[in-house]
Design a protein around this nucleic acid. Sequence first.
DNA 1: TTGAAAGCGCTAACAC
DNA 2: GTGTTAGCGCTTTCAA
Lengths: 342, 342
Amino acid sequence: MSYVTLEDIARQVHKSVATVSQVLNGKDGNGIRVGKETREKILKVSRELNYRPNYNARQLVTKGTKVIGLLIPDIMQMFFNEVTYHLSRRLSTAGYDLLLAHSYEDPVPEKREIETILSRRVDGIVVAPACGKENIPLFKEISDSGVPLVLMDRYFSGESFYSVTTDDVQGSYELFKHIVSRGAGRIAFISGNPDTSVTMERLEGYRLALEEAGIPYRGDLVIKSGYFQKDGYERAKTLIQSGKIQECDAVSGVNDSVALGILEALWEAGLKVPEDILVSGYGDERFSGYLGCPLTTVRQPASEVADRTYSLLMDVIKGRDVLTKDIKVSCSLRIRESTDGS
Amino acid sequence: MSYVTLEDIARQVHKSVATVSQVLNGKDGNGIRVGKETREKILKVSRELNYRPNYNARQLVTKGTKVIGLLIPDIMQMFFNEVTYHLSRRLSTAGYDLLLAHSYEDPVPEKREIETILSRRVDGIVVAPACGKENIPLFKEISDSGVPLVLMDRYFSGESFYSVTTDDVQGSYELFKHIVSRGAGRIAFISGNPDTSVTMERLEGYRLALEEAGIPYRGDLVIKSGYFQKDGYERAKTLIQSGKIQECDAVSGVNDSVALGILEALWEAGLKVPEDILVSGYGDERFSGYLGCPLTTVRQPASEVADRTYSLLMDVIKGRDVLTKDIKVSCSLRIRESTDGS
DNA sequence: TTGAAAGCGCTAACAC
DNA sequence: GTGTTAGCGCTTTCAA
């Protein structure tokens, strides 16, 4: 329960705490400062005693913790799962630890978590903001106060935070261009909250693709909902029950979970995908390629997002010049059976 | 970059640091100790200044960090993903933060991560040990030294650590009982390292089920391999090429990833599941129910494992009496098409 | 080549 | 009600 301290070692080797500290930090220019004998004795004793430096005490004087805070809505979402994995990997090779916190898509816990992360004096913070703008002032405050902050996956338009996001306008545009090319002109889009950058961008890609094809935008086919499987299921069911499904050549979900719900509802109603109707998602979840009817979707490059986030964060931490404050990485289309009759 | 300190506040309100500390910790019995006016002034100023206590400084005197270290092989594995999610949730409601680290199934980074976690003076550690016994002495040392440690998902037989694991003997037994009941007597089992508790237990369930059915155990049908999709693929392919597949009624993977590889290989060879041969996995990955041929598998209750781990850890931390040092939670069979012709 | 001393931000015991 | 003091474990001048 009680750890060995520098003083314990110092006492054993009859040297001062300062000397022990020097040796154990390798800051003595490797033997220039401390005598070979004492250094070896110190090393030996510290090993025998299982000395483990107290990083908390250290931060008090060095001002650094070598900890990065990561705040995400939900690690069960494939994309965040992957990003966390890759970011953790990067960070640990660079000697950083990862403090992981969840916002559950809710600004209230988000704020609370940010506060405790700051109280731990992390060297930097990565956050994938929860939907909603409530915490923008907080993000501003902390980045103004000089704490390295990088937004990930989502951003706030009009604000100038460091951010790494996927180019969902491009991804979505390509997706819908493909669907249109399959002969589908009337495409229902079950989307999330249009306040969030995620929904906004995917909707924009939808709009662009239709416009380019000369297909009029029909507001009644764009259905606001949530981001979960049940949301897709319920909205699709409504579409079916109201008979509006007859007017649709395709139904798209704002993400793969929603698309999975859509598939369920369609199957339940005896509709065949892709024969009767096309379906698509977004995000390329782990299950998407293995569904009874493999799902056409857009792959967001999680590992690239993690890498870019890492580099950007390090640039900010080290005070290096940053060329682009908001980095966008592009997505790639995954065409599968759900939109591909052939 | 520089944070507000108690002293900054003290100076502004013309009170001592001690008083400010009292107020901000709510340790003054709510006004008993500190005057109403001063308390309010302190609260106000601390808010204005965006005061955020330095938890590192605090730990130096209180000896507590309110941080729990979690060390897992790989968060991309569904089971660890879920456990992390639920554990994080539990911990944050209890006011703890989560320090997440990866071992990548390798004892070397595992040891390194343990060391830095300890140097951060966490209040407790949860680890799902990497395969291999190399770090048992380390685990012993830290738990002997009084640091609350709970092993999760995997344990070391013969050692007396606190642990929460799934009862894979039972899960596996039920799985193979089911397969035998489907008329399959000759079951190939593509397993991992029999040194690990995971493989050992699943193999034991296999053995038990066969024994019960009076089916002789055939060593040549138990194939040692790894834990990944490619391992299942390669071993199944060997089985096919050697013609031994003819002697098998079923092929089982030590987990779902391996089973997925098996399916691939079988399909590639033109074999039909479950008509020609049965297949099963273990772990109920997210994709397993949605495969072209939905996979029979065993569900490990991640959220229950997380809950039990949390409770056990808290018991250890608070020094409460613990009734069972090694908790086992039971698994449930998920019968799907891959073993169910009907 | 080494040590003394100061100080990081905070809490807790005790005195006033 | 409030302040003084000591000390947590460490790093970092500066002096010897």
